[in-house]
Structure formats: structure tokens, C-alpha cells
Design a protein around this nucleic acid. Sequence first.
DNA 1: AACCGCACCAACCGCCTCATC
DNA 2: CGATGAGGCGGTTGGTGCGGT
Length: 244
Amino acid sequence: MRKPCCDKQGNNKGAWSVQEDQKLIDYIKTHGEGCWRSLPMAAGLHRCGKSCRLRWINYLRPDIKRGNFGQDEEDLIIKLHALLGNRWSLIAGRLPGRTDNEVKNYWNSHLKKKLINMGIDPNNHRLNQILPRPQSEPAPVLATSATTGSKNTITTSKPEKSSNDDNDRVSDTASCLEDDYKSLVKQQVATSGSSNINLDLTIAAPASPGHKTSFGNEQQNCNWGKTCQVESEPTSLPTLILFR
DNA sequence: AACCGCACCAACCGCCTCATC
DNA sequence: CGATGAGGCGGTTGGTGCGGT
């Protein structure tokens, strides 16, 4: 068993003070990110490196966009969650200025409930058949098969952890869905016009500098490493349907 | 005014992956 | 090639604020 990295006595825990924030900002401005383990001592912080990293990435980074999520961001999160499951860092990488923690919190506190209210299972993005839905509600995302009874519904998101260990990774299904996603992107571009949301699924440096994703580590015999360009006509109707 | 429940979100914890030795 | 360290990720927790009773 490995010892925890933050077991050092005397390290601060809990909320960060303004002074601590300033020390961290000053240090990173001067020396840049990296070497989180040695950063606290160098910066004069009584924190573990992990805590410093989290604080910087989730709160102090200058390019962080704070405030409410826009409707386009919401939609994108839902779509990406359908594709990727709880891969928050990947999803956040598609949302400029948003952090994985923020996306995760927003999902858990807002979007999950929203989907449930719409009669959609947030775990698999499928329509709950028994749940009645007000007529005035907009038609939810849904796979064509969910309403037709076809078995072609693609279950993309990561199900509960207990169900299957393989589901804890970017599934082959997800990579197979890339084409569906391309279609969705194409639709989105056609219907909503310009957007500054980065819909590209390139597995590269995300929106913010220094924010690495783990995608490079998860190529898994697929072409995630390539820029996903919308270049071919969809050969079939996309399984996932846009909200709007 | 006091209490309670809920929602939100910052931060922590444990595990995983990758790099290095 | 296994052991170890560091960084990163996702799940969970705890503090705080707010609205309802």
C-alpha cells in the first residue's frame, strides 16, 4: 500500500485563504506550472502539492470561466456525457474555461435532475418509458430506437461502476460513436450557426493551456488521437438526437 | 427568530496511469 | 521487468448559504 502523498503533519487543509491563493498565483506566474510536489515548499505554502494543483486548476487559473453555464454548454455537456460517460476531464476539455470539477458538479447538481425530469435516465441517456412527461416539454434527446422499440439504441455513457469494470474506460462503443458525433456536430453547425464552443474531439491540448487530458494515454486502438473532422456524410441517422 | 432541509461547490481521498530508475 | 514516485482523474464529503416552515 502506498502512503498518501498528503500525510505530512502541519499541512493546511480546507478552504484556502487569500494569502495562500496569492502565494500560489505569484509562484506559478514566476515559475510556471509543474513539479507540484516541490511547489508548496518553494512557494511557502503549507499544503500538499496535490492540493495546490487542484486549487490552481479549479479556481485560480486566469482563463477560468466562472458563472452560469449557457444553454449551448449544457447541451454539449449532455451530448459529450452520452458519448464519454463520466470522463469529466475530457468533457471539460471541450468547454473553454470550464474545469472538470465544475462540469462534474454542474452535472450532479443540475443536469442530472434536468434529465430525470425530462424522463431520461442520466446514466444511459435513454428515455424512461414509464415516466410521464408534460406535453409542453421539449422532446428529449433520444435515440430513435427508444421510441420505436428497436434494439439499436446505443448505450454510451458509463453505467454504474459495479456493473462492469470495462465500463470504466473509454469504451469501444464510445469510439464507434465518433461517427455519430460527427453527424451531431454537423447538425449543430447547420442549425445553431456559430458558436465558440469547441466541438472538435481532437485528443490534444484542451482549451486552456497547461490543462492536460489523459486522452493521449487512452488511444485503445482507435483514432482518438486524430483530429475529428466533419468530412463525410453520415451514413445513417444519428442515434443521439440534439436537444434543440 | 429559530430551525430544518436542500442545493451548491470547493476541497479531499483513493485509485489509476505513466515515467523513471 | 518490477518497484517507486508523481501527476491526474473521478467519486465523495463537508461547509455554507438560502428558502421554506
